[in-house]
Amino acid sequence: MVDTIVFVICAVICLTGAIGVIAARNPVHSALMLVMTLFGIAVLFIAQEAHFLAAVQVIVYAGAIVVLFLFVIMLLGVDVATDLELGKLRGQKTAAAGFAVVALAVVGYLIVNVDTTRTGVQSQGGVIDNVTPNVDLLAESLFDQYVYAFELTSVLLVVAVIGAVVLSRRHPPLDTDSAEASN
């Protein structure tokens, strides 16, 4: 019973936040709505006993990524421009509506024709036995089975940091004197 209540509340929070992200005219409101969705998903992670991921979800997503979004919004200035009006691309709204209809149809089909067949193949990444703590299982999987992928993510992060630095660096202008003055 408690499970159901928690799920319904979190689902409503998630969906409200998600619709708020795409419906809010102000990008700051979009970012705050995103935080709402992320917290709802973190609670749903806890409800499914993914405790470590719930903590990471709050710390990394709500704590770092959304703050980064807000920082950039504030840096660039909030413009409540004619964002939702029709752009140069014809049929954009139609394409979006078509995507939504098709995707919802697929989800509805899957709900109706649900098939819970399992392959019976033994777990490769560690069996959840409800005795070992979640963090232990995740650490074992991450640093044993997927250690090479884990090492590769460090490379990815270094590349991303270097890319961000290169992208946001001011290009050397032709006239160095005016650049000095503008800085």
């Binding site: 991921l53 990394v60 777990s123 490769q124 990444g125 999987s141 992060l157």
Partner: peptide
């Protein structure tokens, strides 16, 4: 009953962070 799914989510988080950094740049 397989922890590998949660491991994948961990990697998705890392990739999302990198993607946001480059995208915002």
């Amino acid at each position: 009953g397989d922890i590998a799914g949660q491991t994948v989510v961990f990697f998705v988080l890392v990739v999302a962070a990198a993607e946001v950094v480059v995208g915002l740049g």
